[in-house]
Design a protein around this nucleic acid. Structure first.
Lengths: 158, 158
DNA sequence: CCGAACTGGGACTATTTTAGTCCTAGTTGG
DNA sequence: CCAACTAGGACTAAAATAGTCCCAGTTCGG
């Protein structure tokens, strides 16, 4: 369906770890706490810092801390920081598209993109930490929701 | 941000092409009309057929045709057919997670997933074909929408 | 019947992304 | 100064994606 990089997941974990308090944590400390490779966590933290989701403190005794309160950080920001603002299609109205009818569908992808973006902006880190996420404000009428558990089942049987 | 395979895009194009009429089109014809490699289109069509989005007619003079009316086909179905029901995280409550706090965030990913899924279910192929997609029913208040044009700009400058 | 035109379903290869590691610099506390 | 950290890449390894090809089965038309 939709694919989110593992980094987005890692990033969220790291952010969740740091959300426990406002203290400064070194990369190695977070790595130990999260049972991940130090180098990897370090990389993640750098990415998060680049997008101002965490603040860095240099030098000995340095480390990182959440730049804002968990309720002021959206999932869209975290995903953005980790995966970059990658969108659905490539053609941004530049070229490649020879046909009119085709490009029209392209433009519509962006509408879809925006919808997803908005949905992600509504979910905060604070909510992600809570034991169970109970939506922000979404009408969950009985739509036939697709099963989410079937990972990697590219080869369908039906 | 979110990544959709190129196949999802191709699949949509193919579906859009076939939506022009209810006739039978061979893979090579679609390929020619869409200016894509025949083998690739053939593969796409097979995938779409497997999920009953198009119906196949075997033998000479055979080909594919839309299985339903464009307004009865959702983008979620097309994307699903092409990319499979891939979800955000891997752990489906099975194992790997040692920590409580971590897994709690995992569960919440699924909520997000559902939101996206629902959004995609509301957009039909018929709407995708229209010159400009004017949303289904989404409040587009002035949210700071992330720029969509910046493709592949993993290295941010800000 | 036979051959041409198609689909069905893979296998297979190439290419691009993604993930993960490491190295050199710069900063700060003791 | 030295030790503990972050900054920012470069680099390598692994995996997913995209794309091609092949062989089998089906149907139309002569």
């Amino acid at each position: 369906m939709l694919r989110l990089s593992k980094f987005a997941d890692y990033g969220t974990q790291v952010m969740a770890y740091m959300a426990k308090d406002g203290a400064v944590h070194s990369a190695s400390e977070v790595a130990a706490g999260l049972d991940m490779a130090a180098a990897t966590v370090s990389k993640i933290l750098k990415m998060l810092a680049r997008d101002d989701l965490v603040e860095s403190v240099m030098g000995a005794k340095g480390g990182y801390m959440l730049a804002r309160h968990p309720q002021d950080i959206s999932m869209a920001e975290i995903i953005n920081a980790m995966d970059g603002p990658i969108s659905i299609t490539e053609c941004s109205g530049t070229s490649a598209c020879t046909r009119e009818a085709l490009c029209s569908t392209r433009g519509n992808w962006q509408g879809i993109n925006r919808i997803i973006q908005e949905a992600l902006e509504k979910v905060t880190l604070a909510e992600m930490i809570k034991p169970k996420h109970n939506d922000t404000k979404h009408h969950t009428h009985g739509h036939h929701v697709v099963d989410i558990s079937a990972i990697r089942s590219r080869g369908k049987s039906a």
